[in-house]
């Protein structure tokens, strides 16, 4: 199941958000977590940590999530035997050192967020990871997947026809083009709006 991971299939992307941070967005239904490796196939989320190459996999099924342990994994302090469900606020412990918090910020969206509790990060300084279902909300307020304190309003990323789209109540621009009723976004697109700017980068 993890073999499909890490393909350059557009299942992972980075959002570089001015004034906010860098977020890794994983759109796959299964997202693997592991340590650094010299081999070609690293996990979707490859942390600089003392972990197995593929240490655990977080899977989305319907509206819910569960985690599959391939190496010692804990959820809320209890060892995971094979798999266990994940709910909002659960703490995931990987191999005694790595600690992540699993969040489901919005009840209206199946997307989840992973927060870093320990010091371990991917090679780049990523501020958070979004496990994106159909939508990803960026904006002010706790119910957004990516919290952007100073934004006047939220921006919605959503999937349509296998592509990522972007829309907002605010006036957004993709380059010089005004986005009305949403627009598909591609690798390298820069989206600007009032008091906001971010770049979408597929990896």
């Amino acid at each position: 199941m993890t073999d499909q991971a890490n393909q350059p299939d557009g299942s992972r992307s980075l959002l570089w958000i001015d004034g906010v941070g860098t977020y890794l967005v994983c759109t796959g239904d299964q997202v693997s977590i592991g340590g650094p490796t010299a081999e070609q196939r690293a996990a979707d989320i490859s942390l600089l940590a003392n972990l197995s190459r593929i240490h655990a996999t977080i899977c989305r099924r319907g509206d819910g999530y569960f985690i599959e342990a391939h190496s010692p994994t804990k959820v809320s302090g209890r060892d995971v035997i094979e798999r266990t469900d994940l709910n909002d606020g659960y703490e995931i412990g990987l191999s005694d050192t790595v600690r992540l918090r699993f969040r489901l910020p919005s009840v209206l969206s199946a997307s989840a967020r992973l927060e870093f509790l320990s010091v371990h990060r991917p090679g780049l300084s990523v501020d958070g990871i979004v496990l994106m279902g159909d939508t990803c909300l960026l904006g002010p307020g706790e119910t957004n997947h990516i919290l952007c304190h100073d934004w006047p309003d939220a921006v919605l990323l959503f999937r349509r026809d296998g592509q990522l789209w972007c829309k907002s109540r605010m006036d957004l621009f993709l380059g010089d083009r005004h986005i009305q009723d949403g627009s598909p976004i591609e690798n390298g697109d820069i989206i600007t709006g009032p008091e906001l700017r971010f770049r979408f980068e597929a990896i």
Partner: peptide, 22 residues
């Protein structure tokens, strides 16, 4: 803070560095 910045992502005003975000 007003989020208007001189340099866009991916610009390279300085040799050897790529700006990713403000």
């Amino acid at each position: 803070a007003p989020m208007k910045f001189t340099f866009a992502p991916e610009s390279k005003p300085l040799d050897g560095f790529t700006i990713k975000r403000a």
